[in-house]
Amino acid sequence: MNLTTRLPGLMLKNPVMPASGCFGFGKEYSQFYDLSELGAIIVKAATGEARFGNPTPRVAETSSGMLNAIGLQNPGVEKIIEEELPFLRSYDTPVIANVAGSTVEEYVKVTKALNHSKDIAALELNISCPNVKEGGVQFGTDPSLAKEVTYQVKEASDYPVYVKLSPNVSNIVEMAKEVADAGADGLSMINTLTGMQINLKQRKPIIANQTGGLSGPAIKPIAIRMIYEVRQALDIPIIGMGGIITAEDVLEFLLAGANAVAVGTANFQNPLACPEIINDLPSMLKQYGFYSVEDAIGKGHV
């Protein structure tokens, strides 16, 4: 079974990668398995300076999912380049850096800094974090801002740029078209949906930030629908994500039109989620009549 899939700047041995924010910078999960098994790794978001994140509690469990409001805590792009990314060199798997910021200038600064790293293969442009006060999802919900930041980052970057879209919009195709027009090499979709959960005894939201991003199987049908819609309208490569737990979920994303997939919340439930999915892929694809991953991409369209 041929599991390879090709995207701009990424020749992947299989289509499965951990999603940004759900895998740190790889060290912890390298204790559980050989990271070379992964198709790629999307590391945690980098901002221009260190960010300390939101107050705790930062997570809450929901039906078939979870809310999180970490708030882009990270040591800043320079420290990530110097202290985190080199660890991943020893693995035979491409690394995608996640670029975040409050302003276009910060996004460009992070992008330019990452040009100096030889440890990455592509950028994921995070314009969809719902948990920070400034920037983040603003860029991902306003089409003109999304276009502007994509254009500037694309101009500044030596690496292919995948723009991570927010589902918190009424027209996902419009957003996809705007960032594609601005030169995005690919899309990454979807980020989390803004949600809230209230503790009955305390009579207040469980998460200190009040709102958090909903992830996990609860959002999978939304991700599938959005990828399907974008695939109907555009040929742009898509890394699909949103609630993937099993190899069957991966096939559903491929059928919707994703060229590769990212696994997020499932890593928390099962640290071995990614390698187990990869292991299950060949027989599952065969069972559904496919001879390769690329064979299945977009085949769910009627």
């Binding site: 994140g53 805590q73 640290p271």
Partner: peptide, 25 residues
Amino acid sequence: EERMGCGVGTCYACVVPLKQDPKQS
């Protein structure tokens, strides 16, 4: 004790600020 996500150190859900520099956790 804190609500945890991954439990192994990747998700930054269960952080606690440090006395010597409250911005660090």
